[in-house]
Design a protein around this nucleic acid. Structure first.
Lengths: 153, 153
DNA sequence: TAGCATTAGTTATCCGGATAACTATTATGC
DNA sequence: GCATAATAGTTATCCGGATAACTAATGCTA
């Protein structure tokens, strides 16, 4: 791929990151949430109580990030953290009633955000988009972890 | 759009942001750069010397971010900042020789990053992708700025 | 010319997320 | 049983990027 194309792609991804996050922040602010926190709440709503290591895996971010996220959500009253009975190292995170109530609102504006994000795209493209994006994620994620370093790094 | 689809999309965008940035960071680290800085250097290489307000516009980030980015790149010797002759408020940013040399390397690994990012996608999808992503950016960016607030915010 | 709005830039402070270094617990192998 | 490895979590510190509040210079308008 020549540089023009590569730059168009990389720059578009960078801008999408900034803008989509900024838009999510604007939508979540009225709920008292910062972007990132909604992902934790949604994951708990989807899967039920989880320990932080599982959350870290599910959210795709590192354990220290999960520690901070869950602690802030606990301080806000949306989440409860209790020691795991079977493993004294682990702590189970689960939604409180307040958190469950919030999830409903998050789901609404999550739909609104997705709708406005894909405005103007043909339905087929919209349908394919999540799969395409996940392919991209898998591509850059895989290379970052597998040690078959392609020479450049 | 129902929640499942919306979440698939939003989550994919969030993960792509994290992973693509992390991969970029890994590739840029050997050059002593942090992600974000390459965008400034590439923009200067493309357009020539610019004042920070122009850089802010071109990079799509806020003036305080540009101040920090350009100052760190100046400290690293890749960029020179001089007062604008015609406007004593403005400061012109331009590449040093060191910066110009770096741009060549950045372009190379920028191509490598784009190549690995789209691995496995059909050529047509790859060709359409930048345009699709720019549409997404325009959608979320526009709503954030235009005051015709669609009720949710 | 005087006054005010606009613009360029900086500083201080906030946020999420990352890594590195550490503690505490659990699992494994001898 | 005991030493060692692996795992769960926390703390401290770094980064980019954002907003708010501010200074300084410019432009506009009366």
């Amino acid at each position: 791929m020549d540089f023009e194309q590569a730059d168009a792609l990389n720059q578009a991804i960078r801008l999408l990151s900034l803008r989509h996050r900024a838009r999510a922040a604007a939508l979540l602010a009225p709920l008292g949430l910062h972007p990132g926190q909604e992902a934790l709440l949604l994951e708990l709503a989807r899967t039920g109580p989880m320990i932080q290591a599982e959350l870290s895996e599910a959210l795709g971010c590192e354990p220290p990030s999960v520690t901070l996220m869950s602690r802030k959500l606990e301080a806000a009253g949306h989440v409860r953290r209790t020691p795991a009975p079977s493993d004294r190292r682990a702590s189970v995170v689960e939604l409180t009633d307040s958190g469950k109530a919030l999830v409903g609102q998050i789901k609404q504006l999550w739909c609104a955000l997705a709708d406005e994000t894909v405005t103007g795209l043909p339905a087929q493209t919209v349908a394919e988009l999540p799969g395409i994006l996940r392919t991209l994620v898998g591509n850059v994620d895989g290379r970052a972890r597998r040690p078959h370093g392609s020479g450049v790094a």
